[in-house]
């Protein structure tokens, strides 16, 4: 898959970045940009576009690669990731065409998406707003402030997706800070909750359709994923949250992704 190869290559070229949580959310982004969202790569600021907000801003390689593969950026530009003078910053920033929000400090994207969605409601626009959060990110109190406010204001045009890959920066999420029962938490905050295999396109698409059809309350999709998905030595390995493949590892990773 092109996006996976892009992620591994661009982080390796930068010798830094966050491949693990990028690889875990590939199907979520390709489903959104490929099948669900109304968007126009030739006009990234189109007022009627659906919005995708990457709240887990460190996973920007998956966003940059997706934007490149859908025509927002030259694929060649991915090589400049994290380099001096590049539009592809180490954490997502609005200077990149197609990036909706500057992120990097966790917990802020859902609030941002709710603001965008409420602005759309005032403007009588029917665009939808999708926010991708990490599971470790759910440690942040602001996520729950935002969750409460979205239910209170019945913002049913917002869909949150939690990339439930089970690993955060230091270790496994269950070791650092247990967030289960996660679905119950969102339900208690007034959300419609769906649980899917985040690598199964059909399941992701079905959930996104159900989110769109859900009226009067926001929907969260808990996408069960594998951190580092697609590269054997990165899969389920906390080491690759924030470390890129070295030259030898890159060769192996690309060979595996060819298959």
């Amino acid at each position: 898959m092109d996006v996976r190869r892009d992620i591994v290559q661009m982080t390796s070229a930068a010798n830094s970045g966050h491949p693990g949580g990028s690889l875990s959310s590939v199907e979520i982004l390709t489903a959104l940009y490929g099948c669900v969202m109304r968007h126009d790569p030739s006009d990234p600021r189109w007022p009627d576009r659906d919005r995708f907000i990457l709240s887990k801003g460190h996973a920007c390689p998956v966003l940059y690669a997706t934007l490149a593969r859908f025509g927002y950026l030259p694929v060649e530009e991915l090589k400049t990731f994290r380099q001096l003078g590049s539009r592809l910053q180490g954490h997502a920033h609005i200077m990149t065409p197609g990036v909706e929000m500057s992120a990097g400090s966790l917990g802020q994207g859902l609030s941002f998406g709710i603001g965008m969605a409420l602005a759309g409601r005032l403007d009588r626009k029917d665009y939808r707003t999708y926010v991708l959060l990490g599971d470790g990110e759910c440690d942040e109190g602001q996520v729950w402030e935002a969750a409460m406010s979205a239910a209170h204001y019945k913002v049913d045009t917002v869909t949150a997706i939690v990339d439930r890959n089970g690993i955060q920066n230091d270790r496994f999420v269950s070791q650092v800070m247990e967030i289960e029962p996660l679905a119950d938490k969102w339900r208690a905050f007034g959300w419609h909750v769906l649980d899917v295999d985040g690598h199964d396109h059909a399941q992701v698409l079905k959930a996104l359709a159900e989110a769109k059809a859900t009226v009067g309350k926001p929907t969260v999709i808990i996408a069960r994923t594998v951190k580092g998905k697609g590269v054997s030595f990165m899969e389920n390995n906390p080491d690759f949250h924030g470390r890129a493949a070295n030259k030898d590892e890159l060769v192996i990773a690309l060979r595996e992704l060819e298959g």
Binding site: G115, M116, D123
Partner: peptide, 22 residues
């Protein structure tokens, strides 16, 4: 929009509003 005693949410939400032209 009264957001309750939740200033962090208020600030990031404001950013979202601004980004959509408000």
């Amino acid at each position: 929009f009264d957001l309750g005693a939740a200033e962090q949410n208020m600030m990031s939400m404001a950013a979202g509003f601004a980004s959509a032209g408000k």
